[in-house]
Amino acid sequence: MTCVGFEDRITRSVGGDMAPKEAAEVEQHLRICADCAELARELEQDRAWLASRPPETAEVDFAAMRREIRREIARPRWGWKWLTAAAAILLAVGLVTTLRRTPHADRPLAVTVAARKDTVLAIPVPEPVRRSVRTRPRPKVAVAPPQLALEEPASSVEIRLATNDPNVTIILVHETKGVMQ
């Protein structure tokens, strides 16, 4: 058991990281305290042992390592500046391409809402700001009309449900083709 407050001071004094005045105080304490003196002795022993250890090594082929280093430093490097510039160019090209391909970018949009059977509300959308990017003229492509064979419409049952609102009728249409009547 070392004295309170002395453990840290003794540890520092072992490495010589202490002002001479404080070191003298520690030295004086070590003369009268056996536990602290034991701590100081052990720390000094460890320190001397560590300092005496030779640098350890392993079976490493240092010549091969040097060749590898030489190969590595001879390889052309892409610095951060070049990588940043390349990324910026790619981003710009990507942005321009995306803008050019945006469909109907300059056409006004309209949202239609069917409120009643015979009423269509057209909500105009403001003209979009024209971009300076020119749209590429689209090449004309001849498209063959689809060859679709339409099936006979299936017979159906219509159920009309009246609601509280005279303007609203719910119509359920149920296909009966293939169903036993």
Binding site: E7, D8, T11, R12, V14, G15, D17, L39, E42, L43, D46, R47, L50
Partner: peptide
Amino acid sequence: VRSQICNARLKLR
């Protein structure tokens, strides 16, 4: 660094 070394010395001991 002094504090790190002191801690390391005590732990090592």
